[in-house]
Amino acid sequence: MDKTAACRVLLVDDHPLFRRGLAQLLEDSPHFTVVQELENGNHLLDALHSQQPQLLLLDLNMPQQSGLELLQLVRERQFPVRIVVITASEDDDDLFRALAMGADGFLMKDTAPAEMLESLQRAMTGKIALNPDSVDRLAQSLRETATTNSQNPALSSTGNHPTSALSPQPYTPDLTARERQTLLLIAQGLNNKLIARKLGISDGTVKVYVKSLLRKLDLHSRLELAAWVHKHPDATSLEL
């Protein structure tokens, strides 16, 4: 099998059986090639330098350094690699923190093989790789957060954010009032048609606002916009 153009993958997981199984799944695909496997993060930076992978797969719960600690380390060093967390954890905090720290995906270890490959390919195209259940969990939490903030404006203005696992960040981007309103409605799970109806504008205008938000916030998808609101709760303290 010619893998000249295959995505180079570095895999870090302390469970040998799962690690070998995932590596075999990737090797059987024409789209991926595993350049190295690690059982912990001790030699991760060396491997990133020597192997120059395009995709890093991180287990979440590992001894010595957790997947989140390694994720933060890699992002701080600004390695040009896409990172997907693969875990058995169903904790919402883990999901939100991973996305907030720059993960390009969060997949469960019991994901079906075909779905796993499809999701990882999606991550390599600049999209967020999530299982349907994780999407539902994220959307539900965002809706609850938006509702809480709208009912308790003081929480947004002081930075308190009881339903979010993420540390509040100062709101700094220069967004227009309409862009902020659009951002809030995206966080509530509304599609463009419903946003247009809510704001009394056309679908085309909403698309312009969404593109502007992605550009100004340096994001790539609506899901990333919603996750951004989780990091910046003060961005949802809007009057509609």
Rank of each mutant, 00 (worst) to 15 (best):
residue 99 L to Y: 06
residue 163 T to Q: 12
residue 233 P to T: 02
residue 27 E to V: 05
residue 125 T to H: 09
residue 239 E to K: 12
residue 39 E to Y: 10
residue 219 L to R: 07
residue 128 I to H: 01
residue 8 R to W: 04
residue 150 S to F: 14
residue 112 A to L: 13
residue 164 S to N: 02
residue 210 V to A: 01
residue 200 G to C: 05
residue 205 T to R: 09
residue 111 T to E: 04
residue 25 L to C: 07
residue 153 P to F: 05
residue 59 D to W: 05
residue 70 L to P: 00
residue 90 E to V: 11
residue 23 A to W: 03
residue 9 V to N: 01
residue 222 R to W: 11
residue 90 E to L: 11
residue 125 T to P: 00
residue 183 L to M: 10
residue 84 V to A: 02
residue 176 T to A: 05
residue 146 A to K: 02
residue 67 G to L: 06
residue 196 A to P: 01
residue 230 H to Q: 13
residue 158 T to G: 06
residue 215 R to I: 06
residue 196 A to C: 06
residue 67 G to F: 05
residue 22 L to Q: 09
residue 32 F to S: 02
residue 26 L to H: 03
residue 152 N to E: 08
residue 142 L to E: 11
residue 194 L to N: 11
residue 62 M to V: 08
residue 231 K to D: 07
residue 117 L to V: 14
residue 183 L to E: 04
residue 34 V to S: 01
residue 218 D to Y: 09
residue 130 L to G: 03
residue 208 V to W: 06
residue 135 V to T: 10
residue 53 P to E: 04
residue 171 Y to T: 13
residue 77 R to Y: 09
residue 28 D to A: 14
residue 72 Q to G: 08
residue 151 Q to E: 14
residue 164 S to G: 13
residue 40 N to Y: 04
residue 148 T to S: 07
residue 21 G to L: 11
residue 150 S to M: 12
residue 103 A to P: 01
residue 179 E to C: 08
residue 178 R to I: 13
residue 132 P to A: 05
residue 52 Q to W: 00
residue 10 L to D: 02
residue 134 S to Y: 08
residue 32 F to Q: 01
residue 112 A to Y: 05
residue 207 K to M: 07
residue 36 Q to T: 02
residue 179 E to I: 04
residue 149 N to I: 15
residue 171 Y to L: 14
residue 19 R to A: 15
residue 77 R to F: 06
residue 140 Q to K: 14
residue 88 A to E: 12
residue 225 L to F: 13
residue 181 Q to I: 11
residue 176 T to H: 01
residue 223 L to W: 07
residue 34 V to Y: 00
residue 155 L to Y: 08
residue 212 S to T: 11
residue 181 Q to E: 12
residue 162 P to V: 07
residue 90 E to R: 15
residue 161 H to N: 15
residue 106 F to T: 00
residue 51 Q to N: 12
residue 81 V to L: 06
residue 229 V to G: 08
residue 121 Q to L: 15
residue 110 D to I: 13
residue 27 E to F: 03
residue 92 D to R: 15
residue 178 R to Y: 05
residue 78 Q to R: 15
residue 49 H to T: 14
residue 110 D to L: 10
residue 186 I to L: 15
residue 161 H to W: 11
residue 139 A to F: 07
residue 74 V to C: 01
residue 85 V to L: 14
residue 203 D to T: 10
residue 105 G to K: 03
residue 91 D to G: 00
residue 77 R to H: 14
residue 13 D to F: 05
residue 172 T to N: 08
residue 7 C to S: 08
residue 111 T to K: 02
residue 30 P to E: 10
residue 21 G to A: 10
residue 221 S to A: 05
residue 114 A to T: 13
residue 219 L to S: 03
residue 57 L to M: 08
residue 136 D to M: 07
residue 15 H to V: 12
residue 78 Q to V: 11
residue 63 P to Y: 12
residue 68 L to V: 02
residue 198 K to H: 15
residue 188 Q to L: 05
residue 145 T to H: 04
residue 60 L to H: 04
residue 84 V to T: 00
residue 200 G to P: 07
residue 57 L to S: 01
residue 52 Q to T: 12
residue 17 L to I: 15
residue 189 G to D: 09
residue 34 V to F: 03
residue 171 Y to C: 14
residue 205 T to G: 03
residue 157 S to E: 13
residue 147 T to I: 14
residue 68 L to Y: 01
residue 224 E to Y: 07
residue 138 L to W: 00
residue 92 D to I: 15
residue 139 A to N: 06
residue 186 I to Y: 06
residue 45 L to P: 00
residue 222 R to P: 02
